[in-house]
């Protein structure tokens, strides 16, 4: 299990990274925490000719919240984001998701943006990001642009990034007071890959749900929003019946694939169970805040 040969480059800034990507071309990949890319290279499932390391670029390391939401730089480590007070205040669903993503030493290496850019549809961070919503800041030789989280994930390990672009930061939208979140996943062993997960947020007002977000992971080629479930929730009073109906709707339309971890039918069943339980938790939290 040794990687094929590659050339290592280190970028000192976002602009330098973008320039290097442009110069090195299609065979170049960004190296951040390396917790997904390096194992893939060692398994010879990925063989980039060039790596551009962005972890020493000071302008990519930041994390902080303002009125517009939570800003996370591309080099910010998962563990830092997970424990950051701004995350806990603004996007606790992301903190929960990170806490499920690998063991602590892995999270000290891995980055939040790296996980989003890697776009593994079973991973925790992309699902939580999409559930809360936000934007991806992409930088290429042509400048920077903002891509809504809803449009970012296009397929298995495939995103809306153009060739030569890297993600320099993401912004997670803030939700108002009265929001509760739930994040639940199921993995066969504590340290194995999740085979299904649910990331949900609901906002209640006057005893009724007025805003809901339900996203499933591990059941499709992207972190999957479930609008049918959201439609059932909005306008209803938080209740076991409402959550069961929403969970059923969330699982109804999906057709997960089978693999060695579990069949499609089992994943579908898990999706329903996890959604219902995540909504129950979210409602308790929303009530507590209201």
């Amino acid at each position: 299990m040794k990687s094929p040969p590659f050339e290592y480059h280190r970028a000192g800034s976002a602009a330098e990274a973008a320039a290097l990507l442009g110069e090195l071309g299609f065979d170049a990949r960004i190296l951040a925490g390396g917790q997904s890319l390096i194992p893939l290279m060692n398994l010879r499932l990925a063989a980039p000719a060039y790596l551009v390391d962005i972890t020493r670029a000071p302008d990519l390391a930041g994390i902080g919240a303002d009125g517009g939401g939570l800003h996370i730089g591309a080099a910010a480590r998962q563990r830092t984001v997970e424990l950051h007070t701004d995350t806990l205040a603004t996007a606790p669903v992301l903190s929960d998701a990170i806490s499920n993503a690998g063991q602590v030493p892995v999270r000290h290496q891995g980055t939040v943006v790296g996980s989003i850019a890697h776009a593994d549809p079973s991973a925790e961070v992309p699902a939580a990001f999409k559930a809360q919503g936000g934007t991806v800041t992409a930088q290429g030789s042509g400048g920077t642009r903002e891509i809504p989280s809803e449009d970012f994930f296009e397929g298995y390990f495939t995103t809306a990034l153009a060739e030569g672009e890297l993600v320099t930061a993401v912004t997670v939208d803030a939700w108002p007071a009265g929001t509760g979140h739930g994040f639940l996943e199921f993995s066969v062993t504590a340290e194995s890959w999740p085979i299904a997960l649910a990331a949900v947020l609901i906002h209640t007002s006057g005893g009724k749900i007025d805003r809901a977000s339900v996203v499933l992971g591990g059941v499709a080629e992207v972190p999957l929003r479930r609008p049918e479930a959201e439609a059932i929730l909005v306008g209803s009073t938080p209740s076991a019946e409402a959550f069961e109906a929403a969970a059923e709707a969330a699982a109804a339309g999906i057709e997960p694939l089978s693999d060695s971890f579990g069949s499609g039918a089992y994943r579908k069943k898990l999706a329903r169970v996890l959604t219902r339980r995540a909504l129950t938790t979210a409602a308790e939290r929303a009530g507590g805040k209201a």
């Binding site: 066969v188 062993t189 340290e191 060695s260």
Partner: peptide
């Protein structure tokens, strides 16, 4: 958890610890 899983085509579906799941202290 543990099983060396070969499908009907004889493909080994559990060639690494990502697929062949062993319990850790947490389990």
């Amino acid at each position: 958890y543990e099983e060396f899983l070969y499908d009907e085509d004889g493909v080994l579906r559990t060639p690494s610890f990502a697929e062949y799941l062993i319990p850790s202290a947490l389990d």
